[in-house]
Design a protein around this nucleic acid. Structure first.
Length: 492
RNA sequence: CGGGGUAUAGCGCAGUUGGUAGCGCGCCACGUUCGGGACGUGGAGGCCGUGUGUUCGAGUCACAUUACCCCGACCA
């Protein structure tokens, strides 16, 4: 009750959602390590569902999984100039490999004699070590393409961390591919950003805008960065995934050349792409309400919870048997079901608890239902309850899960549409950006104008949308000509 | 890294002019309850973030330090 009240009081404060809802909702808790998080089993189960769905999509598009080392020799990182510049400020570095008893007898200290000859960087991303490896894998056009993905953790020592959105350590997948031609690599970049967009829509029920980053927002070392951008319920944008066309930058830095059919040597063309546990943050911020999480059925660790209403052990025993049958029926359809038969909690408490955890469907059965052959069915997305005959409940739930998945997607899409505006003057932009939302505006294409807007409004160009209709216009700031609208927003 | 705040029981918090710690929730036991977060009685649980000072005496005062939160700066 207290949590719900606080959230209502400060509806737009997502930090509060994290601290008072998410943490309590058993998703994660702060660990002692700076900016890192413990992901509790319930939260990790969501990640596992995401992994399974993404991994299938990667396999379906011809990719394979591999694993590369956590530690990267410092010298590797400096081989690609832009790359090192982008990451240098946020690297954790291993300098020693041994501890010793402290001379003053208090605990242990780093043994100065165990200094590493070359420091090791804890990977902030794996391009360098992977391209150093690919050098030995690729000699001929017959070795191409190389289409690898790895599921891993990375470390970025950000100045400021935020639960799920920017933790010092996070889990992600990173795909790294090598191609014989520029066209093929660009096609791959495009293909994978669309895989992410499909995943967001189909599984997370989050609509996203696909587009390209401007030069100033690009990945360090990339020629082009494709991204998916999602709108959170406070109108802010969240970058949910990226796919980079790396050109021949890394191939040249790590000397990865192959012999073509004509016998001539050429550098390979590269891409990399990734999504992280930030997606869990996106999921929460896109759908949750003041009763807690709202999870899309396709990613919910528990899709249906069964709550008995009973008094006394005898009734509970009867109810258990009864509910177990329903559970078996649902499970036969591949639905994940939790039977909450705890005897020390009242049903009302359980209702609130499972709502907090975002379980899409709840079935409650009491003595009255036993007599009448009914069940009470409640859906998390609308909080509607309905009394149903027991017969056919499995089929009904099956349909309902699909409906909930669609409904929360539509809700998120409608919200985004209602908060997306075409704006043509800078004055109007400056006023309306305060209330959040996506703004489709004309921009003259210069970094100077982009920087000025960021400086004055805190809004950035989230992306230059792909496949948008060309529309000639004038930059809202400088009045210079523009050929299409770009997406401006404040972001996380 | 700059500004502000916090650190006392598993969680949320009190703790007055310095005098060796308390409340609510939760937990354990028993009983009454049970269709939207039940109640009674009893019980367990604390090096007051860490260090150094001041003092007869520090949760309380001073200094330092660490961690976390918020706002910036920074950023896949």
């Amino acid at each position: 009750k207290k949590m719900a009240k606080e959230v209502t009081d400060k509806e737009e404060n997502y930090s509060l959602w994290y601290n008072n809802l998410v943490v309590k909702a058993d998703l994660a808790e702060n660990s002692a390590v700076r900016g890192c998080m413990v992901i509790k089993p319930y939260g990790y189960a969501i990640w596992e569902k995401m992994q399974a769905a993404l991994d299938k999509k990667f396999k379906d598009t011809g990719h394979v999984n591999a694993y590369f080392p956590l530690f990267i020799p410092k010298s590797f990182l400096s081989k690609e100039a832009e790359h090192v510049e982008g990451f240098a400020k946020e690297c954790a570095v291993v300098t020693h490999h041994r501890l010793m008893n402290s001379p003053d007898g208090k605990g242990v200290v780093v043994d100065p004699s165990a200094k590493l000859e070359e420091e090791l960087v804890v990977r902030p991303t794996s391009e360098t070590i992977i391209w150093n490896t690919y050098k030995n894998w690729i000699t001929s056009y017959r070795d191409l393409p190389v289409l690898c993905n790895q599921w891993a953790n990375v470390v970025r020592w950000e100045m400021r961390t935020r639960l799920f959105l920017r933790t010092a350590e996070f889990l992600w997948q990173e795909g790294h591919t090598a191609h014989a031609t520029r066209e093929e690599a660009i096609e791959e970049t495009d293909k994978m950003v669309n895989v992410y967009a499909d995943f967001a829509r189909e599984f997370m029920a989050v609509p996203v805008i696909v587009g390209s980053k401007t030069a100033s927002e690009r990945f360090a070392g990339a020629i082009d960065t494709r991204c998916i951008e999602a709108m959170m319920q406070d109108g802010k944008a969240l970058q949910a995934g990226t796919s980079h066309f790396l050109g021949q930058n890394f191939a040249k830095a790590f000397d990865v050349q192959f012999a073509g059919k004509d016998g001539k040597l050429d550098y390979v063309w590269a891409t990399s792409w990734g999504v992280s546990t930030r997606l869990i943050g996106a999921l929460i911020m896109a759908h949750s309400d003041n009763n807690g999480l709202v999870l899309p059925p396709k990613l919910a660790p528990i899709q249906v919870v069964l709550v008995p209403i009973f008094k006394g052990e005898e009734e509970l025993t009867l109810m258990r048997e009864h509910l177990q049958k329903i559970k078996t029926g649902l499970e036969a359809k591949g639905i994940s079901v939790k039977l909450d038969d705890r005897d020390n909690l009242r049903s009302g408490f359980k209702f609130a608890e499972w709502e907090l955890k975002g379980v899409p469907v709840r079935i409650a059965v009491g003595p009255r239902d036993m007599q009448n052959g009914t069940v009470e069915l409640a859906r998390r997305d609308t909080l509607e309850k309905q009394l149903l005959p027991l017969d056919g409940v499995v089929e009904h739930v099956e349909k309902l899960l699909v409906e909930i998945q669609e409904n929360i997607y539509k809700k998120a899409l409608t919200f985004r549409e209602q908060n997306t505006f075409k704006v043509d003057t800078y004055e109007e932009f400056k006023t309306r950006i305060e209330k959040g939302g996506f703004f489709l505006c004309h921009w003259d294409g210069t970094a100077e104008t982009e920087a000025k807007i960021k400086e004055e409004t805190k809004a950035t160009i989230r992306c230059i949308p792909a496949g948008a209709e060309p529309e000639t216009g004038k930059c809202m700031v400088t009045g210079k000509p523009s050929v299409q609208r770009v997406v401006f927003a404040r972001s996380y």
